[in-house]
Every structure is written in C-alpha cells, then in structure tokens.
Design a protein around this nucleic acid. Sequence first.
DNA 1: ATATTTGCCTAACGGTGTTAAATTATTTAA
DNA 2: TTAAATAATTTAACACCGTTAGGCAAATAT
Lengths: 199, 199
Amino acid sequence: MASKDRIQRLKEETRINILDASLQIAKEEGWPALSMRKIADAIEYTAPIIYEYFSNKDAILMELTRKGFLILARDMKAAKEKHRLPAKQLEAMWLAYWNFAFAEKELYQVMFGVDVNCCELCEIMPEAEVPWTMVTEVIEDLMTPYKPTEDEVSVKYYTFWSVIHGLISINMVRRRTSDEITHEVLKTAISGIIRSIKA
Amino acid sequence: MASKDRIQRLKEETRINILDASLQIAKEEGWPALSMRKIADAIEYTAPIIYEYFSNKDAILMELTRKGFLILARDMKAAKEKHRLPAKQLEAMWLAYWNFAFAEKELYQVMFGVDVNCCELCEIMPEAEVPWTMVTEVIEDLMTPYKPTEDEVSVKYYTFWSVIHGLISINMVRRRTSDEITHEVLKTAISGIIRSIKA
DNA sequence: ATATTTGCCTAACGGTGTTAAATTATTTAA
DNA sequence: TTAAATAATTTAACACCGTTAGGCAAATAT
C-alpha cells in the first residue's frame, strides 16, 4: 500500500504549508492580522481543515516558536564554533542572537512576546518623553567633567533602559528565575553602568 | 444653569469609570480578555455608550498608557529628589522604574507592549532551553578559574539576556534610535559584561 | 404644548476562533 | 462492477469581538 505513504507525505506537506503560510502572513501584515480563515485561503482550503493538523491557533504559534528556537540554537552554535576563546565565543553567540532577532523578526516576536502594534501613535505622546529627559539630565550631570556628546549620553541612557526593560520583560513572560538572582542582576547592572559612566 | 455643571461632572465621572473598569478587568483577567462589552457591563451601560467618551478601544489603551507615564514620571521624580549625588539619583530613578513595572504591571504592559499570553505552555518546550544551556556552558568555561556557584553563572546569563533582549524589544516597538547608537550600546554592553566576568 | 435636543439602547455588520453536521470523494468489500 | 464504508472537505452555525446606524423615551427649550 504505497498510496498510504503518498497520502502521509501530502499530509505532512499541508502541515508545513500551514506553518509557512502563517509566518508569511505575519511577515506581510503582522501577527494581529493572522487569522484561521486567512491561513486557509493561503493554503487553498477552508478554515476547519486546519484543525486536523493543529488543535487550535495557539498550537500553530507554539510550533513556530519551536521552529524559532531551533534556528536560534543552530545560529548560536555556528557562531560559537567559529572561535576557541570563551570570551570570543560569548560575543559571537550574542551577536548571533541579535542578528537572529532582526533577520527573523516575526519569529522572535512570537517567541518572546514582543508586541508591535499601537506604537506609531505613541510617538505623539509628550508624557512618554518625561522619563527620558529626566534620566538624560542626570546622566549629563554625571558626565559633565568628561564633556560628552549627545550621542554618548544616549548610549548610556539606552544601556540603562535596555538592561532594565529586558529584565522586566523576561520576568513578566517567564517567571522561572529566582528573585534573588533577578535582584542581583538589577543591582550589579545599575552600579556597573554608573561606574562605566564615571570612568 | 448649575445642572449643566452637574451633568458635566457626571460625564467626567463615567469617563474615569471607563478607564478604571478597563484597568480593573486587565488586572483580573489580563489585557486579551478586555472587551468593550465587558467594560460596558462593569460601568452598567451598553457598549456603544463608550464611544461617546473614547473614539475607539485603542484610545482607551492610549489614555491608560498616558496615565502610566504620568505615574512613572512622578515616581522617578520623587526617587530622584531623595538624593543629591547624580549617581545615587540615577540608581534611585531606575529602581523606581523597576518598582513601577511590577507595582503597576498592567500599566507597564500596555505602555511597552509586553505580551503575557501563551507562555505557561512554553515551559514544556525543551528546545527553548538549548540557547540557555549553550551560553551557560561558555560562561562556566570563562569563569572556571573563579569557581563560580550556579547562581553566579545565572546572574551573568540573565545580565546578558536582559540587556540584549531589552535592546531588541526597544528597537522593535520604537524605531527612533539611530543604528549607530544601538550598535554602540550592544557592543559595549557585551564586552563590558565579559570583562566583568573575567574580573 | 410643541419642538428639539440629549441619553441610552437595540439591532445589525463584518470580523474572529471553533465545532458539528452535511456533503462529496475515495477506497474497500462483495 | 456495484454497494458499502471510510475519509476528506465544506457549509452552517455558535458565541464572541469592535464598531456603527437607527430608534425610543425622557429632559429641555421655545
């Protein structure tokens, strides 16, 4: 019964088609625009068919994040193997992480829950600038002896923001880490950046 | 016509009620569960009434992020004013930022687009652990001379992850910053953490 | 007392994820 | 080869979503 095999192959193919179509739609129109009917359209079926391959929409997203982690792991492994010194390996791995995030932006978004909506409008919200100006002022204060350029101040500001926002996001979407470790990271990061400013 | 005033006051009150109810629902059931009909239920009206106070659902979220930024700014200002040394001010401000994020978790989520869904299930995804183990191994490599505890390694790992993920998120939800600044932050952050590991 | 404005609701439209039933096509059995 | 059984796919529906239009009733103004 070789036809069984053929049918099995076709089934696997449509499964892949569903995943591909979903990612494609996300790339073209963003994750919020992804709908079961739109996926069905893309694979030239009707919506209920999808439920023979995935138990629901979340399962599709889950499978795509799994795929994302596989690609990320592969990239980081390749980056690591290009070097022998651990320090160089670390640098290369995190650069690979960075590159993956932007090369496979949509996968990264679904993997780590980065919203992308709503924020063209945020541009026109003066209140959102207050924390920025406040912190920037103090950084300038601290750096005055070194006569920093505006860009140098920005670098320090974004370093602060990214480490703290990153730590917050990670703690919000995955609870796992212990509070002591998180607090230790926060504390040493802040004092580390401050030290780097003064140096 | 004092009744005009009373009516005006009542109108402002329902406006506030809408905002309060929305935040309340988000706190109890999360942002994805927030719907216009549910808000209407909470304020004991029907859904279309809401559109007399806000042009659409996004406008409600926008107003809440505005509110969030005001609270954040107030907290950071208060933290700053408790100190005179810029370094201490900076530390206090970022700690205030941190505390705000968890004290007003839902506001922070809507302000910075931190998804919270989907990720109880992620726990059962072994692929998600690969990058973690890979990086951790190299960090252990690098720290072997110093005989680090497991927690110390974790601290370094999460420092890396938070600064890089934070920088990525910021670049995905607000484009604004120049690529040079971003790249400078990334580069110096990575080498800085590596240096702190070796020290 | 009549006309007009206001406040609020019901009903509806087009969309979403999802499920059950009906229909069609294919394979198997007689 | 034809009839029965099984599989594949669709249609129809449910309950929800954001949003808009139309209508009814009460308050206000003339």
